[in-house]
């Protein structure tokens, strides 16, 4: 909003300067400030997310440095374009196209400013998770498996994360391996599509690049009637041990039998990498 309202002043400036020479000031105005306005919105949002530690809601940490450096450079160019006078070049177009350009740019800039600068940052929800297959495989990276193997070696199973458990389960779902082991994991509640009444996942999203490629992973938890106590998307910490999944329809052969399920706040880094 503010960025849009703000471009009003340069509007008048350009307007006064060019009106006498060219009737198509509205098209030029749109051409000159549309990109700068959109860049301003993106750059400010990026820097703010970086400063407040929320950039991880959108992109993988390996891009933080590059993204922030380029955002800073972008900020320099945005400010510089207010300092440097606009050249009096540009194509002449029909008045209708010029008006269209101005209105289109104003609408785009307003929508962008609201979506990028005003909507509170958020993590992905179960709506996206249900569009994607949970534990679709391939997530058992060498690192996660090594880490898990090390932790399994120490017998400290409660420290294994959702991702590490999933990678262990991907290697073997032989119940004998898991019977005496306790899991304590944090994630959001996601119904198991094959038995939504009795089984839910303690789920996380794995992000490799940015949130667009987020893939849901999760440990199945057997708890008939869970939806009376928890909502989908609630963040919970589940403690329990693995056993053969009693559910008749669930595709998961093993499930956590919970001893406690506690509501927790959403962690500041909801995704895993």
């Amino acid at each position: 909003m503010s960025a849009d309202a703000g471009t009003g002043s340069p509007k008048q400036r350009t307007d006064n300067r060019t009106r006498r020479h060219a009737p198509d000031w509205s098209g030029r105005l749109a051409e000159r400030w549309r990109g700068i306005g959109l860049s301003l919105v993106v750059v400010v949002a990026t820097v703010w997310l970086g400063v407040t530690g929320q950039l991880g809601l959108y992109i993988h940490p390996r891009y933080f440095g590059f993204t922030l450096v380029m955002a800073a450079l972008g900020l320099v160019f945005v400010v510089a374009s207010f300092v440097v006078p606009a050249p009096a070049t540009g194509q002449s177009r029909s008045p209708r196209r010029n008006t269209l350009a101005l209105v289109g740019s104003a609408v785009l800039l307003t929508v962008a400013a609201v979506a990028v600068l005003m909507v509170p940052p958020a993590t992905l929800t179960s709506a996206t998770a249900t569009q994607r297959e949970v534990n679709s495989g391939g997530l058992d990276t060498a690192e996660a498996a090594d880490q898990a193997a090390t932790l399994v070696g120490t017998g400290d199973y409660e420290r294994l994360s959702v991702k590490e458990w999933v990678s262990l389960l991907a290697q073997s779902d032989d119940p004998a391996l898991y019977t005496d082991k306790t899991a304590r994991v944090t994630g959001f509640v996601l119904p198991d599509a094959s038995d939504p009444e009795n089984v839910f996942y303690v789920a996380r999203f794995v992000v490799t690049c940015c949130a667009v490629d987020a893939q849901p992973i999760g440990l199945p938890v057997y708890q008939p009637g869970w939806s009376n106590s928890y909502n989908t998307d609630d963040w919970v910490e589940v403690t329990g041990f693995f056993a053969a999944n009693p559910s008749a329809t669930s595709t998961n052969t093993l499930a956590v039998q919970p001893s406690t399920i506690e509501s927790v706040d959403q962690p500041s880094d909801p995704y895993v990498y």
Binding site: S39, V42, V43, A45, T46, L49, L55, L57, Y58, I59, Y63, F66, T67, V69, M70, A71, G74, A115, V116, A122, T123, L124, T128, C209, C210, A211, V212
Partner: peptide, 12 residues
Amino acid sequence: TLALSVIIESAP
């Protein structure tokens, strides 16, 4: 969220 993640990832 998804659109913003693509924009923040690609804009740099």
